[in-house]
């Protein structure tokens, strides 16, 4: 009696117009349904319906590319929540860190997770690169995708670097000061670099000034780091990620011996 009713309810739900408009396939374990599960879902559609068996082996792929992407998603989510509370100016930035520590619900875990995921992502990107190198997966036809991957590696490091300044504490301030002081020495474009002085570069018009929006790491640098970190670079990274994934598929998926 009860099972009969259950079946009936299930029937009503799965045959309703609403349900069928959302889920296009049945539950039967058929090759067609398996393919549709991938093809009919915009997120899973990153995958092809079928993959080479070797691509599933942990020892072959180390899962590092996927973990990197997962960490990128984690960083986007935690980053959005951090953005709700954070003000990129000299007066508020450090106070907001204390605000996270003492006031914001789960604020500490939120900030911790953002930082550790960022550090972890730097490591997994390097391991992903190492795996791709060791399996020779950059060889034809995947040369271009390797170059895209190098750009993504650089973007990862720059994202992490711009985020370093945002708490506006001694650690971030001096790390970014040390980092951006290098820009002074850029050949031609920095005022302390080779031929920079001869070309009229000063501390107030060289490339470091452009990066910091000033001659010291101050309020403008904080705002610039914030805009790079939260808008410009994530968007750039997403565009390159799209190309990276697309080319991975077009070039034949995870490299294996064929």
């Amino acid at each position: 009696m009860l099972t009969e009713q259950k079946e009936k309810i299930k029937d009503i739900v799965t045959k309703s117009q609403v349900y069928k408009s959302i889920f296009r396939r049945g539950f039967g374990d058929t090759p067609r349904n398996r393919a549709l599960a991938i093809l009919g879902n915009v997120f899973l559609h990153l995958h092809p319906p079928y993959v080479m068996r070797h691509a599933l082996k942990f020892t072959h792929s180390w899962c590092m590319g996927g973990i990197t992407f997962l960490l990128f998603i984690v960083l986007c989510f935690t980053g959005v929540f951090l953005c709700f509370y954070y003000h990129p100016d000299k007066i508020n930035a450090y106070r907001d860190m204390k605000y996270f520590e003492y006031d914001v619900p789960f604020g500490v875990v939120l900030r911790n997770m953002h930082r550790w995921a960022a550090h972890l992502m730097v490591i997994t990107v390097w391991l992903h690169m190492t795996r791709v190198f060791m399996t020779g997966a950059y060889k034809p036809p995947r040369e271009f995708n390797w170059a895209v991957g190098v750009i993504l590696l650089v973007l990862t490091l720059l994202l992490s670097f711009t985020g370093y300044l945002l708490p506006d504490d001694q650690l971030g301030f001096w790390a970014v000061t040390v980092g951006t002081n290098m820009a002074r020495a850029t050949p031609l474009l920095g005022h302390e670099g080779p031929f920079g002085e001869q070309l009229g570069a000063t501390a107030y018009n060289d490339i470091r000034f452009a990066l910091l929006g000033g001659s010291v790491v101050g309020g403008n640098a904080l705002l610039r780091a914030y805009v790079w970190h939260c808008v410009a670079m994530p968007v750039t990274a997403i565009i390159f990620l799209a190309v990276h994934f697309w080319r991975t598929r077009k070039d034949g998926g995870t490299a294996g011996p064929l």
């Binding site: 079928y50 993959v51 068996r53």
Partner: peptide, 12 residues
């Protein structure tokens, strides 16, 4: 040589 992505890869 080939396996279906759903569920083998998605599961992993």
């Amino acid at each position: 040589k080939k396996v279906s992505c759903w569920p083998h890869l998605v599961k992993l």
